[in-house]
């Protein structure tokens, strides 16, 4: 079944907030087994697009399918196959790491024994076991990202959607997360993640889409999008905007 359906298919997604159009008709097909990077400057609509893709935000028009299951018409099946780490969203952070993982697992209807065993492994691998009973609210930013990733991975989803997984993460943790995601894709999973860090995307992704002003500007495999240039050059050309200062701000160098 996974062979015939793309892991994630978005068609005609539109979202308006008041008068502002945040996402203006996004179509995207994420093949199963790909490592997909969604690039875009701040305010491009990355978070809004991903929120609509996973059922957190109802689109004004268009739809999303996870491995063939419509997120809005058949949410139960779609959400079982899906692991999500939203950005800028709080966790239930007055639980400890272990408690939070157990909570997520049981909410998903998993067997308690399996939950406990996987939670222990995840905490170990992500170097969160030392935190003991520290509440997640007292975690550092990087630790919060890691426990969020653990929550998304716990039930063994077929598609991972991660919003800014590498933001505020130190290099060691970032390497760890890259390794985990690499293994996950090698094992047949699909990852979609948003970022504006070019190096990470160039290093990891098999496919790239560049989003700006609520619309997809470039899409394809990494090599197709990049062509002869570096990804950063392509990105800046597509997005536009200035990259150097002129005469202004002279007072900064006093």
């Amino acid at each position: 079944m996974t062979a015939e359906h793309p892991a994630l298919a978005l068609h005609g997604l539109v979202k308006r907030f008041d008068a502002k159009v945040a996402v203006a008709g996004v179509d995207l097909t994420v093949p199963a087994g790909s490592f997909y990077g969604l690039l875009g400057p701040n305010g491009a609509g990355k978070t809004t697009t991903l929120s609509m893709a996973v059922g957190l935000l109802r689109p004004d028009a268009g739809g999303a399918r996870v491995l063939g299951h419509d997120v809005w018409a058949d949410p139960v099946r779609a959400k079982q196959l899906l692991g999500v780490m939203p950005d800028g969203v709080r966790l239930f952070d007055r639980l400890s790491g272990a408690e939070l993982l157990a909570y997520h697992g049981l909410l998903r209807g998993m067997d308690p024994a399996v939950v406990s065993q996987r939670a222990a492994e995840l905490l170990d691998v992500l170097a969160l076991a030392d935190a003991g009973r520290t509440l997640v609210v007292d975690y550092s930013a990087g630790m919060k990202k890691k426990i969020g990733l653990a929550c998304a991975l716990l039930h063994g989803p077929r598609l991972l959607v991660l919003d800014e997984p590498f933001e505020a993460v130190d290099p060691v943790s970032a390497a760890l997360i890259r390794d985990i995601l690499g293994r996950y894709v090698a094992g047949g999973g699909t990852v979609v993640f948003s970022s504006h860090v070019m190096e990470v995307v160039e290093r990891l992704c098999s496919h790239v889409a560049i989003l700006a002003d609520g619309a997809i500007k470039r899409v394809g495999t990494l090599d197709e999008v990049r062509g002869e240039q570096t990804l950063e050059q392509v990105f800046v050309t597509v997005v536009g905007g200035r990259t150097a200062t002129g005469e202004e701000l002279a007072w900064l160098s006093r």
Partner: peptide
Amino acid sequence: TRPRATGTAVTQLFPRLLGWLPRGRFGAL
């Protein structure tokens, strides 16, 4: 600094007084 956690993740989630709750969706909530 909090004491080290004891027990499995699931047993940690449930307060001791509520140990009788079913280990499922409802219980976890």
